[in-house]
């Protein structure tokens, strides 16, 4: 799975360049994330703006990546499309992750 990474201060913004994080993509997503996230980033902002569909396997993959982050690293999410947002709400993951409406809302200084 293709990921685009941009660094700004202590934030690594990781943009998922694909429309699905489903069961067929989950393992590839986890591997790509582990390779993409710089160890020195204190905040990992996952931009899901291009993702139209996620299932529980994709959700599990995001949880797995979050749990594998080092001490002092945290993951936040941005730009959830409606069908992605629903999966996070149904499973109460919206209470676990900080979720920003837009990537620009999560810029340093705006972080929740």
């Amino acid at each position: 799975m293709e990921l685009d990474v941009s660094l700004s201060g202590d934030t690594a913004t990781v943009t998922v360049a694909g429309s699905r994080i489903d069961a067929a993509a989950a393992i590839g997503f986890k591997e790509a994330m582990r390779a993409a996230v710089p160890a020195g980033s204190r905040r990992v902002l996952l931009d899901l703006g291009q993702v139209a569909f996620i299932d529980s396997s994709g959700l599990g993959a995001i949880v797995s990546v979050m749990k594998s982050l080092g001490d002092g690293q945290r993951m936040e999410l941005a730009s959830l499309q409606p069908n992605v947002d629903r999966v996070f709400r149904l499973t109460r993951m919206d209470t676990v992750f900080v979720i920003h409406d837009r990537v620009q809302d999560a810029a340093p200084g705006h972080a929740g």
């Binding site: 529980s56 396997s57 959700l59 599990g60 949880v63 797995s64 979050m66 749990k67 999966v87 149904l90």
Partner: peptide, 14 residues
């Protein structure tokens, strides 16, 4: 808590 968070088992809930 993130430490306890499980990575699967949400399918039937959905």
């Amino acid at each position: 808590s993130p430490v306890d968070l499980r990575e699967g088992g949400y399918g039937w809930f959905i």
